[in-house]
Amino acid sequence: MPVEQIDDPSVKIKPPSKLIHFVRKNIDVAEAPTGLRALKKSHKSAVPLKIEDIKWLNDFLIEHRKISSTKVYIHELLEGADVILPQPKITPRNPVLEARIQKLTAQQSTREYEAMTKGVDAVRKHYPEDTISYQMKEINKQLIAVAQFVFSVIAAFAFGFIGLELIVGSLDFGFRLLLGIICGLIVALAEIYFLAKKLNEDCWEPPPPKVFTKPHQE
C-alpha cells in the first residue's frame, strides 16, 4: 500500500520502571528537558522519551556519580526499554484499483496453473492459443492495428497538406507542410490513446470450468 511522509522522524524510547523511578526521585523539574519533565509529572508509565532526553540523562548521571555513593549508569536504567521507531501513515488503496489487482492476480495464477498442468491432464492438454491458427489470428490483429494507425496518420497528413489547400486556396509549401504535420500528430495521439485503451480492455479471461460427463450410463 502507498505510504505518506513520516510526520515525526524521531526515535522514541519507552522507559522501564527502573528509569521512571530514578527520574521521579532524583531529577529536578526545572533543569530537566521536556520529555523528562513530562515523565516526572505524569502518573502514567508510558511516556516516551526522545534521544535528546536520554543524552541529557546520561550527562546528569555523569555528574550524579561524582557526588553520590551509588553509581548509576545509563545502560542500567535503559535495561528492558522498548524502542519506538517512526511509522509512516499508510494510505488505503483505491477499492476499484484493489479489485482490479486481485482480478489480474487471480487470472495470472490460473494461467500459470493451467500451463503447469496441461501436460499432465490429457483433457486440458491443448488450448486454442497453442494452435497455429490462433497465433496467426493474433498476428493479423496486430498487423491490422499497425496498418490502421499508419494509414490514419498518412490520411491526416494528406488532409492537412493537400486537402486544406483545396478548400482554402493556394498556400505556401512550408505552411502546408506544417499543417500536415500538425494534423498527423493529432491523429497519431488519438490513435495511440484508443489503441492503449483497447489493449487494456482485452484482458485474458480464465476458461470456464469443464463439465465431465460419464461415457456410459449405470
Rank of each mutant, 00 (worst) to 15 (best):
L178M: 13
A145K: 08
V168F: 12
L179R: 10
L185Y: 07
F157S: 01
V146D: 10
S170L: 08
I144D: 12
E165I: 05
K137M: 10
A158D: 11
G160E: 08
E165Q: 15
Q135H: 08
Q135A: 12
I186A: 14
L178H: 07
Y134R: 03
A155T: 11
V153G: 03
G180K: 02
A190G: 14
A156Q: 07
Y193G: 07
E165W: 02
L177Q: 09
F161A: 08
Q148L: 14
S152P: 02
L166V: 01
Q135R: 14
V168D: 09
I154H: 00
C183V: 05
L171M: 14
F161K: 10
V168P: 01
L189S: 09
G163W: 03
F175P: 00
I181H: 05
G174R: 13
V168R: 02
A155M: 11
Y134E: 01
L143T: 00
Q142V: 04
F159R: 02
K141S: 05
E138K: 15
A145G: 04
I162D: 01
L185D: 08
Y193A: 14
N140C: 10
I167Y: 06
G160P: 08
E165G: 15
G160W: 04
I162P: 02
K141F: 00
V146L: 13
S133E: 15
K137W: 03
Q135M: 11
I182L: 15
S152L: 11
G180E: 06
F149P: 02
G160H: 05
F151V: 15
Q148T: 14
V187P: 05
I154T: 06
E191R: 14
A190L: 14
E138Q: 13
V187S: 10
I167F: 10
F149L: 07
Q135E: 01
Q142Y: 00
E191Q: 15
A147E: 01
Q142K: 12
L189D: 02
L177A: 15
